[in-house]
Design a protein around this nucleic acid. Structure first.
Lengths: 343, 343
DNA sequence: GTGAAAGCGCTAACAT
DNA sequence: ATGTTAGCGCTTTCAC
């Protein structure tokens, strides 16, 4: 059923029917009711393409998911984030367009997206320092919101980010308060903006207590379980081992936990662990999170907020001024995080 | 740059330019070359909506991701699968449309997708027994491929599935060959078709050796780490504990591994573990998978294959006959899977 | 081999 | 308050 058929059925012009359906004020209440009723009864849904062609809007938001040619790993944050954003799109009657592309083709993808008019805006994922995609999107005139920050000219674009500095400052403070002095940082790759900020928070907390950060206690790699295991094992085998760990991902923390066990130590008694992870959806059903989680914030929520911000920007008549949103991590203290070893 | 402008620039009609670009045979070679050259030089990309409106095709495939109102957990297979499928769509110049909806709205979503003409076909995820969505899609006339099977009239629709029965038959055989006789099954929820098949394979292997499956050794729940931990802990505390585990997910297996450690046992020496998991991407970079993986197959690959099958079906002129693809799991034996305890 | 014109389903000026 | 008309950017008859 299309507009033409529906209007013929009602004995009205397409225009009137269209206006009634789109809540134009000039339509009489009686007509509107009658039209809407008929539309529902006949299961009428306007054709997106036709509507888009007529209005110049696509009612779709694009997400470009780069597949790294080096890592070939699918960043686990995407699932969670996409789910959050998707809820907002669905509620706002927007479609979500996903483009999975080799990272080398990313620029071309944005260009095509813009030229084809497939989307009204995009979300930019995983920004790195001084990201080239930001000027590109600006050039293309495609509205966008960045999830995270590119560590440069942060006022010039819109973003939603977690306060990583503060999260790690608090996590480290928490361990310091327990009496720990040798605290290891098992961080993600520092080519990512968030990892740099996490280290900054960690170092700031130490320095505030007069402790000089020890390079031997700081690791930075892609956040796999294996990496956590190796990092913790090596540091624990050191002559001056850490008594606590601040860990940058749940998966990595699982490795750390294992290394602690392998070393004959008990978590919460001999060693304290604090985790910051944005992706906890796969554990939501676990009930008892079997490792001491100190700080967390949900990427799912970030997805929702990015989407909301973008839709708002698109809806604005004037060229939007950048918006910023800094999320504070929720602090969740495990009951048996444990004190620092005495003596 | 649009067709009109491009054709004006070339001093040709829109028709000729369109024909040249779409490789119609009646265009002269010289013209075609000239047109394509100009298109590239001017960065011309046809508007998707206009093209779709004219051809009646959307060049997009839909994926409906239901958010369970009960679990609010994002099924981790999606990320991997979507990435695989996305690669194929990109290569075939198709867009991927994702709809994240509360599972109660799923039916309506498919109806809207069809009415709006937003997609040329859909992939059906996570089919359950006698899935209602299958007749619905048929009614809507929307081409589709099912990832997995609905356990009913399997010949009547197209699907791509992993041979779960065989995978668990082999995994169990492997443990039996090591000498194990009390083998536990830590399975997923049996409302899912794949879990039922896995149990069938497990039971078949046991029965073939004259062993009656012991209900006390079989668990079936949502596959969290915590579940794995509880299941293994309880069974190991039993008076007649298992000496081996066949586990249905990596995450669950992590819990099993922990329970084994907690019980003072060593994996590979006292207890053997075999895992079947379709989602291993997040471990790809781990190098050393720290737990003994017996059988695996990648959902990523399934995503690619589903997408390929669907595009092929859509391209077919006649109403397609159903296609089926059963993937055999790759068998990866960990080096320290260990023998059965003697005596 | 090329072009003119109609039409895909809708919205938005411009009447009335 | 409703209708007429043009047009969004493309493909596709139908003519030449």
């Amino acid at each position: 059923m299309n507009l033409k058929e529906l209007s013929a059925l009602l004995g009205l012009s397409q225009t009137t029917v269209s206006r009634a359906l789109n809540d134009y004020p000039e339509v009489s209440e009686a007509t509107r009711r009658r039209v809407k009723e008929a539309a529902r009864a006949n299961n009428y849904t306007p054709n997106t393409r036709a509507k888009g062609l007529a209005t110049g809007r696509s009612m779709a938001i694009g997400h470009v998911i780069p597949i790294s040619t080096r890592h070939e790993i699918v960043n686990p944050i995407f699932a969670d984030f996409i789910a959050g954003a998707g809820e907002i799109y669905t509620a706002g009657n927007y479609d979500m367009l996903l483009s999975v592309v080799p990272d080398v083709d990313e620029e071309r993808t944005y260009r095509t997206l813009a030229a084809r008019g497939s989307v009204d805006g995009v979300i930019l994922h995983g920004p790195h320092a001084d990201d080239r995609r930001i000027p590109l999107l600006r050039e293309l005139g495609l509205p966008f919101v960045v999830h995270g920050r590119a560590g440069h000219e942060e006022d010039s674009y819109s973003w939603v980010d977690v306060n990583n500095t503060r999260a790690f400052r608090r996590a480290t403070d928490f361990l310091l308060d327990l009496g720990h002095r040798r605290i290891a940082l098992v961080n993600g790759l520092e080519s990512m903006d968030f990892a740099r900020r996490r280290r900054a928070g960690y170092e700031a907390a130490l320095k505030a207590r007069g402790i000089t950060p020890d390079p031997a206690l700081m690791r930075s790699e892609e956040m796999t379980e294996d990496y956590g295991w190796r990092a913790a094992r090596d540091m624990l085998a050191d002559e001056n081992p850490p008594t606590a760990f601040a860990v940058s991902s749940m998966l990595t923390a699982i490795g750390v936990r294992r290394a602690i066990g392998d070393a004959g130590l008990e978590m919460g008694r001999d060693v304290s662990v604090v985790i910051h992870d944005d992706v906890l959806s796969y554990l939501k059903n676990g009930g008892d999170i079997p490792i001491f989680t100190a700080a967390r914030s949900s990427v799912h929520e970030a997805g929702r907020l990015c989407a909301e911000m973008l839709l708002r920007i698109i809806a604005e008549p004037a060229p939007a001024t950048p918006r910023h949103l800094l999320l504070e991590s929720e602090l969740v203290i495990g009951s048996s995080t444990g004190p620092a070893p005495t003596g």
